[in-house]
Nucleic acid binder design. Structure first.
Lengths: 126, 126
DNA sequence: TTCGACTATTACCTTTACGTAAACGTATTC
DNA sequence: GAATACGTTTACGTAAAGGTAATAGTCGAA
């Protein structure tokens, strides 16, 4: 079984060990221990990757936690499953909003770039 | 000319007036005043819309400011224009990363939903 | 054996983005 | 003329997400 030290992960994902420990403090990660030393396996690593992806998208750590928890329905009853499906669809809606926002922002930036390039052209002619 | 009161905008965008004043405190908005009362015009409203879009995408207010500033090249010199174009392209890269992240997250959620629906089916048969 | 590179914990500090409360002015309406 | 609904400023509070010591244990190489 592959294991990672805390600094392995901090190097790989370019974050500090403090950050990783913080995620453990708030219950987002729960690595094994060898004595006092944390040992991360590939599932811990995946969780971390998901957290960081969430961060890039502007999710709070709590939101990331909720989403990650969606990936293991566990032995839920029907009611819980339905709630989970609702939550999933709600997240999907938010993501669609983000897609729209990004598309629009991207277009704005393209226009801004064109304006810049034109201004550059004019300046070049002076 | 159309003008908006602070509570007009707070209602329209579903934020508090405190938030709007905060954006002014940090120099993101600069409405006209009638005496002490703030009067927002459509350009203030657009800026606010851009700020909120940025927020949905997880941008900090400072990042939004930088991006919004990209929309008015002003009377920049060549050097500044080139820097601006670099900045624009840098932002576009980040946005592309976000697009990838969203696509992946969306796929994860779809898989999670399928798992839920299957679990629901099984439970229904019990 | 001591140095450097790890690891750990505890604890206070900082930044961002507002919330919240106090205290007050202005205007309309009952 | 008191209430209601706006608006204002000042100022302290707070939650989230780490940063930054300080202090100390462990381990392999020189």
């Amino acid at each position: 079984m592959i294991v990672y030290s805390i600094s392995d992960l901090s190097r790989e994902f370019n974050i500090t060990t403090r950050t990783i420990r913080h995620y453990e403090d708030i219950g987002l990660l729960f690595p094994q221990r060898q004595g006092k030393t944390r040992l991360y396996d590939s599932s811990d690593r995946s969780r971390l990757r998901l957290i960081l992806r969430g961060k890039r998208l502007g999710l709070s750590l709590e939101e990331s936690r909720e989403i990650i928890d969606m990936y293991q329905p566990g032995k839920s009853n029907v009611k819980q499953l339905k709630k989970l499906i609702d939550a999933i669809n709600s997240q999907k809606k938010k993501l669609n909003q983000k897609l729209t926002d990004i598309t629009n922002l991207m277009n704005d930036l393209k226009k801004a770039e064109v304006k810049c390039l034109e201004a550059l052209k004019l300046n070049g002619e002076n």
